[in-house]
Design a protein around this nucleic acid. Structure first.
Lengths: 68, 68
DNA sequence: ATTAAATAGGGTAATTCGGGCG
DNA sequence: GATGTCCGAATTACCCTATTTA
């Protein structure tokens, strides 16, 4: 089976930033640090996988308060 | 002589744009800049090779026969 | 042949990149 | 160590109309 890199919905830096309530620059730093995988346009701009972002948003390691 | 027995799937500008999450015009700019090879219809519209687009999407380097 | 959608052009805002600073 | 901001340069997005495609 081939990789289905096409069917994956991609998000722009500003979109991810809005979802996390952070500056787009911060998202860029996460990508640099390898905390978030990114796809590059031919011009060098980053795109992020929606599924990964959503996974991080939903299933984030809770602040050790309650996980249910 | 290499026979093109394998049908090379061609993609429209909007299809490529969707894959990269960019505007179709941006794909056109990539073609103009030589970052992406394009095939022209008789009316002047551009078509792109799926194999090349996939290669670029996966972040693989230039079309190299040998990947050291 | 006619309609509707997509693309090619060109021009101008808006994002993003990268580095460095606080 | 992590985030936000300022800067300049580069890339991308949106506006229009005419032509091509389906």
């Amino acid at each position: 089976m081939a990789l289905q890199s096409e069917s994956e919905t991609l998000l722009t830096p500003s979109e991810v930033a809005s979802m996390f309530r952070v500056d787009p620059k911060t998202v860029t730093r996460w990508a640099k640090a390898g905390k978030l995988s990114s796809i590059r346009t031919l011009g060098g701009h980053r795109r992020y996988r929606e599924s990964e972002v959503r996974r991080l948003l939903d299933g984030l390691p809770s602040p050790r308060v309650q996980t249910s």
